[in-house]
């Protein structure tokens, strides 16, 4: 933990070395997710509802997905740009240090420009909370918290998965973006909007629905099963296969080099 904080301080110093560019990137990061919000706002103010959800309900959903994504991105950014580390043989350097590999990759890049995104997603979440028709109780607040935490876990696991794949191939990894950046964009709407097939995929293959659709139903009072609100607690299970693939990848790197 101490080491992690030290890394955080180093990254802060580094980004301060280029102040102008730092603020521009913060603004850029803000704009990227702002456009997701703006398109949602345009569509819903034109049509009123999508798949039966109002703007307030979609905002709540978008706030959860974006907060989960930005939190994961803030901390797991090192995994997100892992292909660069492997390409530039930077992983050799990581292997040469007497510390855990995951911790070092975690520390490799912490980008403060992403705070812009995080703050924005939290604002959206707050707005969604205010605009949504949910009558807030301690239980529902807990569900909301679990949803954000579950989202962070799922996206973090996907970043690890992405990094693990870098050990096998450096080509074609943009497919994984479907599941990270793609989900950030499309996950602003409740998943059943896209039809039953997509919802099934998002339950059993990559379990986004665990932190998004199911608990949202409990929150909006659209289901009688209260336990759906606890579904985000299952998300850590998804870390297991991702971390296992990472381990296999490290073993492969050791035997094949880069």
């Amino acid at each position: 933990m101490r080491l992690y904080l030290k890394f955080v301080a180093m990254h802060l110093k580094r980004s301060m070395a280029y102040k102008q560019s730092f603020f521009m990137s913060t603004l850029g990061q803000f704009l990227i997710s702002f456009s997701a919000f703006l398109s949602m706002w345009f569509l819903l103010s034109r049509f009123g509802t999508v798949g039966g959800y109002t703007l307030g309900e979609c905002m709540l959903c978008a706030g959860v997905t974006l907060s989960g994504f930005s939190l994961a991105e803030c901390f797991f950014r090192g995994f997100d740009r892992f292909s660069g580390i492997v390409k530039s043989a930077g992983f050799d350097r990581v292997m040469l240090r007497p510390r855990g590999l995951m911790l070092q990759v975690l520390c490799d890049d912490i980008e403060f420009a992403r705070l812009g995104k995080l703050i924005q997603s939290i604002v959206m979440l707050a707005w969604g909370v205010a605009r949504s028709p949910v009558a807030w109780t301690p239980w529902r607040a807990l569900v909301l918290l679990l949803m954000v935490a579950g989202g962070t876990v799922i996206f973090a696991a996907l970043f690890i998965l992405y990094a693990a794949l870098c050990f096998f191939t450096l080509e074609g990894l943009e497919v994984v973006n479907i599941f990270t950046h793609g989900m950030r964009e499309y996950g602003v709407y409740p998943l059943d909007v896209y039809g039953g097939g997509i919802l099934k995929f998002c339950t059993f293959v990559i379990p986004y629905a665990l932190f998004q659709y199911y608990p949202l139903m409990a929150l909006l009072g659209r289901t009688e099963h209260w336990f759906l609100g606890l579904m985000p607690m299952l998300t850590p299970l998804f870390l297991i296969p991702c971390a296992a693939l990472w381990q296999i990848g490290v073993r492969r790197y050791k035997s094949a080099g880069s």
Binding site: Y18, Q20, S21, F23, M24, S25, L27, G28, Q29, L31, I32, F34, S35, L38, S39
Partner: peptide
């Protein structure tokens, strides 16, 4: 640095 300009201009144009 071109990075700042790019990160602001790209999303705006795309939208």
């Amino acid at each position: 640095s071109s990075q700042g300009l790019r990160t602001v201009l790209d999303p705006v144009t795309e939208f």
